[in-house]
């Protein structure tokens, strides 16, 4: 794919913007459409684009399969763990009010935490599934 210079250069330019957009979607979720799920998918899309254009070998060097799998698992643990933290602080499961002195601040923290969990899981799972498919037979250029 060495001759697809336009594609490579274009991708290189695009990816930072996609990642930035993903972050925007993640943190702007409180005010507009978006949230962890969409952000995770967009992150994954950026990464998959990279893998498609620069080869899966390079992608694996950036983020080994194990790390990706771990992301899928860790995200769930962040989410469930938030629930355990609220229980530890004396509330019921996923009662964010107890996370800060002010209930509404607590809600903010809680939502940020669980959205992060969703993002990490969705990103990890999407890329892991892509790896699994791609790893069956070489998709490398």
């Amino acid at each position: 794919m060495d001759d697809l210079v336009v594609l490579r250069v274009g991708t290189k330019i695009l990816i930072p913007f996609i990642l930035l957009f993903a972050l925007y979607v993640q943190f702007h979720g409180d005010y507009g459409p978006g949230g962890g799920f969409q952000a995770g998918v967009i992150f994954a899309a950026a990464y998959v684009l990279y893998a498609l254009v620069f080869g899966i070998g390079n992608a694996l060097r950036v983020m080994p399969a194990k790390v990706v799998y771990a992301c899928g698992a860790v995200g769930v643990m962040i989410f469930v763990g938030t629930g355990f933290v609220t229980m530890g602080l004396g509330g019921v499961f996923l009662d964010y009010n107890v996370l800060a002195h002010e209930p509404s601040h607590g809600q903010h923290y809680g939502i940020i935490a669980v959205e992060l969990g969703v993002l990490v899981t969705v990103f990890g799972v999407m890329v892991a599934i892509f790896y699994a498919f791609a790893g069956r037979r070489r998709l490398d250029p």
Binding site: G35, F37, G72, A73, G75, V76, F79, V80, G83, F93, L94, Y96, Q107, G110, I111, V114, E115, G117, V118, T121, V122, V125
Partner: peptide, 16 residues
């Protein structure tokens, strides 16, 4: 994320 955050947690588990 909050009122029905538990469902979202379940959906995250589905994705996992």
């Amino acid at each position: 994320s909050s009122y029905r955050g538990y469902d979202t947690m379940g959906e995250t588990a589905v994705v996992f």
